[in-house]
Design a protein around this nucleic acid. Structure first.
Lengths: 152, 152
DNA sequence: GCTAAATGTAACCAAGTCAGTTACCTACTC
DNA sequence: GAGTAGGTAACTGACTTGGTTACATTTAGC
């Protein structure tokens, strides 16, 4: 899911940059180096997470659903994880359990690992899409000609 | 890799409990609800990470390589991840790059996500195997008959 | 209205990962 | 020497995921 997250952030940063102008999946795919359908699939997830909205028809495309400052990397992370058990799913350790160790181990790990995950979440929550853009801007040499809504 | 981590921790906790007594892969597998070969494979990873050592031959098995207090969940996590790129591998976003955005995006994400990962690592590093055992002990009703080195 | 340009999806394929399993060699204890 | 263990290779089946094609649907603009 590494790539999903990276591509999603890439896309969102692009959308943030193209404020208000819908961007087509084709353009986004070319920028992210993937296939338009992959972008649209991803977009479906981002849309149900409420991070983007899309416009059908000619001249359509995707737009941010809210200002970049209101979208955190945690939002993106969560959207990619969707309903999946957060990061550490201990549930699969078979509760073999002619005694309780299996089950108890499960709960113990869930607690201990849950706090680790929470720490990561907090760190992710602290970074907004706007900050990502600022970081990007600081790194881009000058204007390389791709800062518009054109290619990237 | 959820299950790998969970099983590894399960195994290590078991070994910590059986202080000094080698435990066979068969017993460990039965406790963790998996196959002995899976345990041995995992054990290979833990061994190269320096967390356990194994004894060949009759009466052999696995033992902790150091005291439980000296093994953190981060050690386990790292062992499971091995040489793999830590958690967020942004490298796969194609640097399509008729301009620099792709590459720059990569670096930016690596930095931002790296700090999130570091936060998680710190939280994991704060938990030792000994604490896991204490947590387990506190949860186990009384002595359910499986606290020895026998079954679990 | 018609056309062109988009999205939304479904379906399929190839690649990769991983747990489970079998099999066999090797090492060690008794 | 026999039995008991780990080490490892090899194969399988399930699952995930990215890429691709194909097609229905929607919308803007003429």
């Amino acid at each position: 899911m590494n790539t999903r997250f990276a591509v999603a952030t890439h896309i969102l940063a692009y959308l943030a940059h193209a404020e208000g102008q819908p961007v087509s999946s084709e353009v986004l795919a070319s920028s992210a180096g993937t296939h338009p359908v992959v972008v649209r699939r991803l977009m479906g997830t981002l849309r149900s997470a409420g991070l983007v909205r899309t416009q059908l028809g000619a001249g359509g495309g995707a737009l941010l659903a809210r200002p970049a400052a209101g979208i955190s990397l945690l939002d993106v992370f969560r959207a990619m994880r969707e309903q999946k058990p957060d990061l550490f799913a201990v549930g699969s350790t078979n509760p073999n359990s002619h005694c309780d160790l299996g089950r108890v181990m499960q709960h113990t790990l869930e607690d201990l690992l849950g706090s680790a995950e929470k720490a990561m979440h907090q760190a992710l929550a602290a970074v907004s899409l706007e900050q990502v853009m600022q970081d990007l801007a600081a790194r881009l040499p000058t204007d390389c000609g791709c800062s518009g809504t054109a290619a990237a």
